[in-house]
Each structure stands twice: as structure tokens, then as C-alpha cells.
Computed example of a mutant assay.
Amino acid sequence: MSTQSFFQPVKLGRYTLSNRITLPPLTRQRSSQPGNVPNELMASYYRQRASAGLLISEGAQIEPRGQGYAWTPGIHTPEQIDGWRKVTNAVHAEGGIIFAQLWHVGRVSHTSLQPNGDAPVAPSAIPANQVSVFIETGPGTGTLATPSIPRALSTKEVKELVQLYAQAARNALDAGFDGVEIHCANGYLVNQFISAQTNQRDDEYGGSLQNRLRFLREIVQAVVGVVGPDRLGVRFAPLFASTDEARVYLGLVEEDPHTTYIEAINMLEAAGIAYLSIAEADWDNAPDLPEDFRRDVRNAFSGCIIYAGRYTATRGANILEANLGDLIAFGRPFIANPDLPARIAHGWPWNPLDPETMYGGAEAGYTDYPTYAD
């Protein structure tokens, strides 16, 4: 199939994107320490990939309690905001458009990553399983660890967190980002509120589906008040699989994911946000999204729809040609191929990914992948 469909302009909120290829949020753990501050190396990495129609930053924790992995960047201190400005300036110098992903891991954390060694926070005091966090063991060294048992947030604290998302959105605009994405996927905090598996609250944020969606609804309202709906995206990771097949870090399995996520998407449609990003399961033999779910997503949501998850150029073109999605995000391929849009346009081969250098480190496996012209 022709890849021409990738190179038709598309309207996303207030922006017109030059192509339909997206750099999705990719955790790389290269921020400067101490302080989890974005740096010149990160600016170079994003600059190299600025030919994407849309770039979305790696997750940036909205507050210190939101961190679940060592060396991930924050977006809550003046130093971090200044660091992100280096990134956005670099992308804009190449004519790119970049959104910041606002991230809070909730229970997927460890006491060593939390202020004062406290327990991580979550909707309910239910520990995360089938997932690891990454903690620092020394300068530039770390290890995988089991998440610590979380404590349940009070109702007052949940409302305070909504305002922390709004403040992070203000910080993102101050840093020069073109918009923000709320991370509601991969088993992290907002996902924990949505899922009945992890939300056993008896206040206004627990119980019914509408109550479990309340946290997301209030965050969307608060962030829209800062950036406007036309500069806001939301990311989900709906899983259609039995619990024993699921990898919790890729999303929490619902008894009825179709109903849960279509209801959430109806709420986003009412808010008028710019885009919806769907992260699909991407491990070997992972279940596919049902076609009826894709169709119902398209029918429910009038903004841009982004799909991500082990896409090839051909598979992505099929989604675009079928009008089931508007943009395709390439994760691992974009890590290894900074000029991925040109490679797709010309049918050039793709560099292989070095999995050993995905997380942490310096230039190796980060900014030293060659372009095809090299």
C-alpha cells in the first residue's frame, strides 16, 4: 500500500500538522540530576525528530510524588521549566509542534522516589503487581524494584491533585509547549481512578463508572481552563484481554472496556478536546483492538485520533485509509530512526533498535542513531 496517506495535512485543534506521523511519549530517563531537569542532550534528541507532524514529550511528572522511575523529567520547578524551554525552542527552530505529556504514576512508585520516603499515593491502598519501578542506587546507576504499598488519597487531596494538573499545564505553556496531553493510560494515576480493580473508594470518586471518571473529568475541565480545549489531548490504553494475559503497566483490564472507554471518550467529546491517543498492547501475541471498538471510537469522537502500538508503515496506512485514525505514532522505530518520516516517504529501510540503551545513559542509543543520508 502507498504511504501517501501519511503526508496529507491534518487539522489538530488550532494547528495544521504537515504529516500524520507522531512521536509518542517515550520514557528515556536522560534528565539532569539532581532535580530531574531537561537538558541540552534532550533538546538535541527532540530536534532530531522534529519532522514528525506532532511530537509529544516523554511523561513529565506534575509533582514530586508523581515520579515512578529514576531520572525522568519533571514539570513542576522553575529549573525544569527552563530546561523544557530548551527542548521546545529546539523543536520550534525546526518548524515542529510539540505537546507536553502530564504524568503522575500514582501507586507505581517506590518510597525511595517519594518525598521524605513516604508511601506512594493512589485512589486506594492496593499495591501494584506485575510491574516494576526503577530506583537509583548510585550516580548513574539503578535497579528495578517492586512498587511500594500505596496509601489512599483523601477526597481533599484528590481535589488538590486536579489543581496540580492545571498548574503543570501552566508550566508547560511557560516552557513553550504548543499544548498538553493528559496521561490516563498504562496503569498510572488517572487510569487507577478509572479502573474498578484499583479504585475501591466510597466517596464521590469511587463506585459507579461516572464516579470513577470524575477525576479525569475534573482534570480535563481544569486544564481546558488553562490551555483551551484546542490544545489538549488525552491518552488511554484500553486492554481487551483476560487478567492473566494483561500487563498492568500497559493498562488495567476492565470487565467491560468497551463501555468504560466509550463513556470516557463521550465525555472528552463534550469537552471539545483536540485529540485522543490510543496506546495499544504492544507485546508479542498481544490482543488486537476489536474493530467495533475502533469504529465506535471514530463515531464518538470528532477530534483527531492517534493510534500507537507496534505499527509498521503499511499497518498505519491501513488505519488512515480506513478513516479509523488520523495520526499514527511510532515509538521504537522513532527512537532508532530520527528521520522516520523521510524513511516512510521514500521507502528507505529502518535502523534496528538497540534495546540496551533505551533507558538512562547519555548519547549512545539516544542521539547517535544515523539518518539515512548519513
Rank of each mutant, 00 (worst) to 15 (best):
H76N: 14
E245K: 15
E321Q: 14
Q163Y: 10
N337L: 06
S242P: 04
A128G: 05
Q67D: 06
D368E: 11
I262R: 03
R30G: 06
A286Y: 09
V180Q: 07
P355N: 05
P24E: 02
L164N: 12
E269W: 11
G35E: 12
L23R: 04
S124Y: 10
C304M: 13
I56M: 08
A286G: 14
E245S: 15
L55Y: 07
A286E: 04
A168F: 03
I97S: 00
A60K: 01
T260I: 12
R343Q: 11
A300D: 03
W84I: 00
V253R: 10
F177Y: 02
S109N: 12
A222C: 10
P78R: 13
F177G: 02
R247E: 09
I98W: 02
L320V: 06
A70T: 05
G117W: 10
P370Y: 11
L353C: 07
I262E: 00
I75L: 14
Y205V: 06
A50K: 04
P34I: 05
A364F: 05
V133K: 08
T72I: 15
G117Q: 13
F330W: 02
I344L: 02
T77F: 00
P287Y: 04
T143P: 05
R294T: 13
A281P: 11
L320E: 04
S5E: 15
D374G: 03
S124K: 09
Q67V: 08
N186L: 13
G365K: 05
